[in-house]
Design a protein around this nucleic acid. Structure first.
Length: 433
RNA sequence: UCCCCGAUAGCUCAAUGGUAGAGCAUGCGGCUGUUAACCGCAGGGUUGUAGGUUCGAGCCCUACUCGGGGAGCCA
């Protein structure tokens, strides 16, 4: 009985005859010899078909099988230095399930519009393959990290009755009677409720922003991880974020080396991601900017994209900027007792121009102060009644953060644009496929 | 919402206002070590849409549509 295996596991089968099931990634023929670059989802391997080794029919069929033809091949696994990847299959038998002609995505250059319109097929290319496998590794590392620390995954709802922060543009859903509903823009408020119930929690799910943003850092729909920790201070939140990022990067380096090579990622940049990350107060960050680009940043304003670029380029690892002026931050953030003009918040800026990958804070835990802010921001008080209950019954210091999955993956993979970090990216002018 | 850029063969692009081209892909043929193979032959076009200027528009002008990059805002 010939074992069926995957390309990923070929190293365990050298010298054996195995069966692989996959697709033609590329092919070049040299008379009585076909080189088939086979892909099966787990990897890529070269299969060599000599005319004398297989039936006349199979040799002909493989000769006419274009890119993405589906086929099953059986052959001897050899270590072969001349082959890409180091292994090669000496094909003895097989079957072409479907012969394909004219697969649109050829091994040549393509523009972003064409590729995005063919995303369902583009995913079969090597780059997306590597990115999706790293994305998966990031997700599982995140879950493992929190699982090991005793966090409970409790997901927040996607439909919400009101805006979380009251500022962003939301997607309206017309379904619920007599009441407007929206797609969530953050699961945080609900995570605060579950943190009061279960202690240490996180939610991890899709998030929607209807902002008319058109940059390489923006998606209309993206995945966000939001841990929330009861009895945590801002320092605890920063430490947790730092540990998480180190754990995730280490995990990718250990488990996805081949994929990082496919992406030609500079590994030294990932190896330097170790604790401690630089911690910079807003005031220090402003001073740094004044020195680097005098007059560019106005004290009191939030940092713009050019400011963030300067700040992140100053370090070889993510930089944590904390204690922003309260005016530029959300209503639910607690004030710094040492300086009431500042909020106890932190933004983590990834290196290499990806920008903010984490935004977090210690939350306001005082009922009266929180109520005052809701009024100040002219938010609908009724919609926040349940949220205020959390400060009415056993309020404690607590905090958490939100991590943008696609931005994190884009940073780790060294991608130009976050859209490549999403299997089917949704953007302002793109909903297909 | 604002600023900048683009749209020509399936793809990536070229074409001084004067016969619309190349490479790749596709099909057929050749080749026993290819790595985006190579060689030969073949098919492939309402130049995004609508209007205008001109003897003549892929090229100049106007509007629109679609897309890309960036700003603001954010993860």
């Amino acid at each position: 009985m010939i074992p069926i295996t995957t390309i990923e596991r070929l190293a365990n089968h050298v010298g054996e005859t195995v069966t692989l099931r996959g697709w033609v990634h590329n092919k070049s023929s040299k008379g009585k010899l076909h080189f088939v670059q086979l892909r099966d989802g787990s990897g890529y391997v070269q299969c060599v078909v000599f005319k004398g080794d297989v039936s006349e029919e199979l040799f002909e069929a493989i000769g006419h099988a274009g890119q993405e033809s589906s086929l099953v091949l059986t052959g001897l696994v050899k270590a072969e230095p001349r082959a890409p990847g180091g292994f090669e299959i000496g094909v003895k038998a097989g079957d072409v399930l479907q012969k394909v002609e004219g697969f649109p995505i050829t091994p040549k250059e393509h523009g972003p519009d064409f590729l995005l319109s063919h995303r369902h097929l583009w995913l079969r290319s090597k780059r997306p393959w590597a990115v999706m496998r790293i994305r998966d590794c990031v997700i599982s590392a995140i879950r493992r990290f929190y699982d090991e620390q005793g966090f409970v995954c409790v997901d927040s709802p996607i439909f919400t009755p009101a805006a979380c922060e009251g500022t962003s543009t939301l997607f309206e859903v017309n379904y619920f009677d007599d009441e407007k509903a929206y797609l969530t823009q953050s699961g945080q408020l609900y995570a605060e409720a579950t943190a009061m119930a279960l202690g240490k929690v996180y939610c991890f799910g899709p998030t929607f922003r209807a902002e008319k943003s058109k940059t390489r850092r923006h998606l209309t729909e993206f995945w966000m991880l939001e841990p929330e920790i009861a009895y945590a201070t801002l320092d605890d939140v920063m430490q947790n974020a730092e540990e998480l990022l180190c754990y995730v990067v280490k995990s990718v380096l250990e488990r996805r080396q081949t994929e990082l090579e496919v992406l030609e990622r500079d590994l030294t940049k990932l190896h330097s991601i170790t604790a401690p990350f630089p911690r910079l107060s807003y005031d220090d960050a402003h001073a740094l900017l004044e020195k680097a680009a005098p007059g560019q940043h106005k004290y009191g304003d939030d940092f713009g994209a050019p400011d963030e670029t300067i700040l992140s380029n100053a370090y070889d690892r993510p930089v944590m900027v904390h204690r922003y002026p309260k005016e530029v931050k959300a209503f639910y953030m607690k004030r710094d007792a040492a300086d009431p003009t500042k909020a106890l918040c932190v933004d983590v800026l990834a290196p290499e121009g990806i920008g903010e990958i984490i935004g977090g804070s210690q939350r306001e835990d005082d009922l009266e102060l929180l109520l005052g802010r809701i009024k100040e921001h002219q938010l609908p008080e009724e919609a926040f009644a349940w949220y205020l209950d959390l400060r009415r019954y056993g309020s404690v210091p607590h905090g958490g953060f939100g991590l943008g999955l696609e931005r994190t993956v884009a940073w780790i993979c060294g991608l130009e644009h976050v859209r490549e970090a999403s299997p089917f990216p949704r953007m302002m002018y793109r909903i297909y496929p």
